[in-house]
């Protein structure tokens, strides 16, 4: 274990040092600050914005789980995750489409329309799952009540 850990850390230091060497030798010094800023901003944006929003969504789900039922909430959360990821990977195409490109063979999709359709489908799935799940919770409550 000790050998494996030492080897991994050693190899890692070597690889990272080579990456640093490439930054120092292949990239103009005037660009270094930009790289540092982007790496720092990525951490801040994730840890300070994206992750807290996801935590907030989780806390919201926690509050309604009892009333709506676990399955419905899980499906709705899944739909939200899928929609958020598909939106995230399409943001560059949406922005670049508004900026325009003289090459007519790139950005050929209708990304806004595609995302709207995707969200509509996901919303429908989430609504159906939540309603079914809520009905089952109510039925279970009623059965428990009559017994």
């Amino acid at each position: 274990m000790r050998t494996a850990r030492t080897a991994l850390v050693g190899i890692g230091l070597g690889l990272a040092a080579f990456g640093g060497f490439l930054v120092l030798t292949d990239i103009d010094p005037s660009r270094w600050l930009g790289i540092v800023v982007w790496v720092g901003a990525a951490i801040l944006l994730h840890d300070g914005v994206v992750a807290p929003v996801v935590v907030a969504v989780g806390l919201g789900a926690e509050r309604v789980r009892g009333r709506v039922g676990d399955r419905g909430v899980a499906v709705a959360q899944g739909a939200l995750v899928v929609g958020a990821i598909l939106t995230a990977i399409t943001v560059p195409a949406l922005v670049a489409s508004t900026l325009g490109n003289p090459n007519p063979t790139i950005l050929v999709g209708s990304y806004g329309v595609a995302l709207a359709v995707i969200w509509a489908v996901l919303l429908a799935v989430a609504v159906i799952a939540l309603r079914v799940s809520r009905t089952m919770v109510l039925r279970a409550e009623r059965t428990a009540h009559t017994k």
């Binding site: 890692g12 690889l15 790289i35």
Partner: peptide, 20 residues
């Protein structure tokens, strides 16, 4: 150049992380 250089930093940091 940046994507390439940072890729080496990434796998290096990944190996360190696995070691830890």
């Amino acid at each position: 150049a940046t994507h390439f250089a940072l890729a080496w930093v990434l796998v290096g940091a990944l190996a360190i992380h696995l070691g830890v």
